[in-house]
């Protein structure tokens, strides 16, 4: 036990006496207050959202365009949010794990830091810039060479049923952009756990004659599995809440569909808020805030799950 572990109530005796005791009380109080303010802020976020969402939940459906009940209104949005985030994760996860392995085990040691820096750069690009890049550069490429091919060759699958969009404003374009945006998060966490693999595990595997890939499969991946899963969940949380890129790219419609290459897409909650909020007033605002509350609840659950997985420790080493 070190002296620093003293509880705040018992500071070390001081020759200056009264003034420093006062100083300690003020300083300790300030930092305790800041800490409690964190709890208050979070409670306030939930409380204010609920207060503002409440009128919309109880309101008569005739007050809104389309006479939708709240469930009918939020349903397609919720579906779109989860569908887009799921697709993004599907694309990003294998890529992120591969990139993390490349940086942690394959790249030359001296270049690995620089390569990692490049990936971090991706995380620093504002989402609105990703959005306009997605619609100006990526969407034309996909709609010119990828969507028609998918429709012709894989059109029997519901995902590629078409008709293929010519503008590129599709769920798939949005998902690719989201994937690029969440990849740095998953890569950063995976890289971290891969680097923590005990050196002895790796050497033992190599000493038994394993090739490098066999060593990675036997020692590195089992050790890092829970880290990768928690990174993926954090990435999923980010993809669920991502707003601007989706708002710029998608052409929204009020429907459920798994078709990812057509112009008719369900919107996401966040993007719907960004598109409608500036022009809304009255109960419409309350309804948008209520959808925001739903989004908050989902991301809260996903993030809590991610922490639980990470909190279970990187126990993959044992199993």
């Amino acid at each position: 036990m070190t002296i620093t572990d003293n509880p705040p109530g018992a500071p070390p005796a001081s020759p200056t006496g009264q003034t420093s005791k006062l100083g300690d009380r003020v300083f300790g109080g300030l930092s305790l207050g800041a800490g409690i303010l964190i709890l208050v802020t979070l409670a306030a976020v939930a409380l204010f959202l609920i207060t503002e969402a409440w009128p919309a939940l109880g309101a008569d459906t005739s007050e809104f365009d389309g006479d939708d009940t709240f469930i009918q209104y939020v349903g397609p949005l919720l579906f779109g949010t989860i569908w887009a985030a799921f697709l993004a994760l599907l694309i990003a996860l294998p890529m992120a794990v591969a990139v993390a392995l490349f940086i942690s085990h394959y790249a030359p040691k001296r270049l690995a830091v620089t390569f990692g820096y490049f990936i971090d750069l991706l995380a620093a690009i504002p989402s609105v810039v990703f959005g306009i890049w997605g619609i100006a550069v990526l969407a034309p490429i996909l709609s010119r060479s990828v969507f028609p091919w998918l429709e012709d060759n894989l059109g029997f699958l519901p995902f590629f049923a078409g008709p293929a969009s010519t503008s590129g404003r599709t769920m798939m374009t949005a998902a690719v952009v989201l994937a690029v945006m969440i990849l740095p998060i998953i890569t950063a966490i995976s890289r971290e756990v891969f680097l923590q693999t005990p050196r002895l595990h790796e050497e033992a595997s190599l000493a038994l004659g394993a090739t490098k890939w066999e060593m990675i499969r036997q020692a590195v991946i089992p050790y890092g599995r829970s880290g990768v899963i928690s990174g993926a969940m954090l990435g999923l949380g980010r993809a669920l809440g991502e707003t601007m890129a989706v708002a710029i790219i998608l052409s929204p419609a009020d429907l459920y569909t798994f078709n990812i290459i057509s112009n008719q897409n369900p919107n996401t909650i966040a993007s719907n808020i960004a598109l409608k909020f500036p022009e809304s007033s009255g109960l419409e605002v309350n309804r948008l805030i209520a959808t925001g509350l739903v989004l908050f609840a989902i991301t809260f659950l996903v993030n809590a799950l991610a922490r639980r997985v990470a909190g279970a420790g990187f126990s993959g080493a044992a199993g």
């Binding site: 964190i38 802020t41 976020v45 959202l49 809440g241 808020i273 960004a274």
Partner: peptide, 16 residues
């Protein structure tokens, strides 16, 4: 709670 706050979607912070 700081961890939870890290995961708040930016649009939700705006709505708050």
């Amino acid at each position: 709670m700081v961890d939870v706050m890290t995961g708040i979607p930016s649009i939700v912070a705006g709505l708050f």
